[in-house]
């Protein structure tokens, strides 16, 4: 079955609307359902291109966020009464910090509230990850009007950075593994971050120079080769997302 080709802005608008809906629903179950549906869509529609992989990457990122968020939610905060699951030792805080405590009894209520808040945040991240995964950043740039040229350049650099970062990270990790360095832990991140930063900086400068020397933004008018058209399918996707917001 042929994959439908949509206007590049469609998925971003759709993601924005879904995020609004998720915030308004405030429901863990619905958020999880939404993420499931989005994941299905991404694995069906995404292309085999560098940006196609950014969803998997945001998936990993949000699992991390969820974990850290839950742990911190359990440790720090205002006590919520309920069934105690386990008790952690309490850290003594000075008297001028009333109402906050670190450690103490972990109630199942506290656990669920920490988890469900984490899931909401992750759901929103994942939905935007899906939008990034489904639209090529370059096609997105093509839809921008010319008068926001300077802005457009920064957008293309920003949006093409994430997917290319994903490819570079895996390449550099591989190289570091071969130097016999472990690829886990905090220290390994420093080792990856430095070559990564250099590379993305060099790449962005190259791209900016290339765009400039090919005359991007010199003319206030800009013609379109095979313009990207807004189709019925685009309207359908957006309307269904608006409907979801309306229900919430």
């Amino acid at each position: 079955m042929k994959k439908p080709s949509l206007h590049p802005l469609t998925w971003w608008i759709w993601a924005g609307l879904l995020a609004i809906a998720i915030i308004r629903f405030q429901s863990t179950v619905l958020s999880l359902l939404c993420v499931g549906a989005v994941a299905g869509l991404v694995f069906w529609l995404r292309e085999d291109a560098p940006w196609g992989r950014s969803f998997t990457w945001t998936l990993k990122l949000s699992l991390w966020i969820l974990m850290i968020r839950t742990v911190i939610g359990m440790l720090i905060g205002v006590p919520i009464p309920g069934n105690t699951v386990l008790t952690l030792p309490i850290v003594q805080l000075p008297s001028w910090m009333p109402g906050i405590r670190i450690g103490g009894a972990v109630t199942s209520e506290r656990l669920t509230s920490a988890l469900s808040e984490g899931i909401l945040i992750c759901a929103i991240i994942l939905i935007f990850g899906a939008a990034a995964s489904l639209t090529s950043p370059h096609r997105l740039l093509r839809t921008l009007p010319v008068y926001i040229y300077e802005f457009g350049v920064s957008i293309v650099i920003a949006t093409s950075a994430l997917p290319q970062l994903v490819t570079s990270v895996s390449r550099i990790r591989q190289a570091q593994l071969l130097r016999g360095q472990s690829s886990r832990g905090f220290k390994s991140w420093k080792r990856i971050a430095i070559p990564l930063l250099e590379e993305s900086l060099a790449r962005s400068l190259d791209l900016a120079a290339a765009m400039d020397s090919r005359g991007y933004g010199i003319s206030s008018k800009r013609s379109r080769y095979r313009p990207i058209k807004w189709s019925y399918l685009d309207s359908f996707v957006i309307i269904s997302a608006i409907a979801v917001v309306g229900v919430s």
Binding site: A49, S136, H138, R139, L141, R142, V156, A202, R203, D206, L207, A209, A210, M211, R214, G215, Y216, G217, I218, S219, R222, S223, R224, Y225, R226
Partner: peptide, 18 residues
């Protein structure tokens, strides 16, 4: 590093569009 679009045809057209 200098490619702005993602398909061959669009890349060729980019300079002329500008």
């Amino acid at each position: 590093n200098g490619f702005v679009t993602d398909t061959v045809e669009e890349e060729l057209a980019f300079g002329m569009e500008n």
